[in-house]
């Protein structure tokens, strides 16, 4: 199948040393009335292709903010975010929207599936923007459903699925367009232990078997352990190790 081959190829071509995402001197603050709240200060780090990075840190430390910057749904006050050589901080709103559509797959804490569409249709949604034929779309969706192991549930509506199943559908929707990076903000935050295991196992497979680059924000040390690398964000600064016990 075309998509399968493409995944395999991208895995083979992976070069772990090549700088894939370069983040340089990022500053980000929020304004609340007259108050300026600095959130990220002078953040710089790289992410290699095929990385599975877990971002940890206390609440309010700016994990989501950083993730949003990398995913191109928010802009830093200053600094460079270069992804595959494109500095996304210089893109206009429309350019950014196009860039996101082909480069970023989002996984949200609350799944955010469209309740009136079936699992199949939810996964098909992002493919509508790709110019694939109906037949091709169908193949891609079925393949994605196979990968998340929900083929038998494809005609179910989100309301008829468990939280874990919904999150797996959401993950299928995120990777079905074969984006450059997958970003996940606490993907297991709303799941029970068993469902969380399932979801994490799936993400690990996406990373190991299909070579997807994943950046995941999590509070859960068990979840973080599944990643190749853990970074800690504390008081707006990145550390390789926790400064305080999380």
């Amino acid at each position: 199948m075309a998509l399968e081959l493409k995944y395999l190829k991208s895995k083979k071509q992976m070069d772990f040393k090549k700088k894939f995402i370069e983040i340089r001197d990022i500053y980000k603050s929020y304004r609340r009335g007259n108050l300026i709240i600095p959130v990220l200060e002078n953040i710089s780090f790289d992410i290699v292709e095929g990385e599975f990075l877990a971002l940890m840190g206390p609440s309010g430390s700016g994990k989501s903010t950083l993730l949003n910057l990398i995913a191109g749904i928010d802009k830093p006050d200053s600094g460079v975010i270069s992804i595959q050589g494109v500095d996304i901080t210089t893109l206009s709103e429309t350019e950014l929207a196009h860039w996101r559509a082909s480069n970023v797959g989002f996984i949200f804490q609350f799944y955010n599936l469209i309740p009136v569409l079936t699992a199949f249709e939810n996964i098909e949604l992002p493919l509508l923007l790709t110019g694939l034929s109906k037949q091709e779309r169908h193949e891609h969706v079925i393949l994605a459903l196979k990968i998340v192991n929900l083929e038998d549930r494809m005609h179910h509506f989100p309301g008829q699925l468990s939280g874990g199943q919904q999150q797996r559908v959401a993950i299928a929707r995120a990777f079905v367009t074969d984006p450059t990076i997958l970003v996940a903000d606490e993907p297991t935050g709303d799941l029970d232990r068993v469902s969380a295991e399932d979801v994490l196992e799936l993400m690990t497979r996406l990373n190991f078997e299909l070579g997807k680059t994943i950046i995941m924000v999590t509070h859960d040390p068990k979840a973080a352990k599944k990643a190749r690398q853990i970074q800690y964000l504390e008081k707006g600064i990145m550390h390789a190790h926790p400064q305080i016990d999380v």
Partner: peptide, 13 residues
């Protein structure tokens, strides 16, 4: 609104 945000995140213009 969150649903439209999802659509936007998927690149729906």
């Amino acid at each position: 609104l969150p649903e439209f945000a999802v659509l936007k995140s998927l690149g729906v213009g």
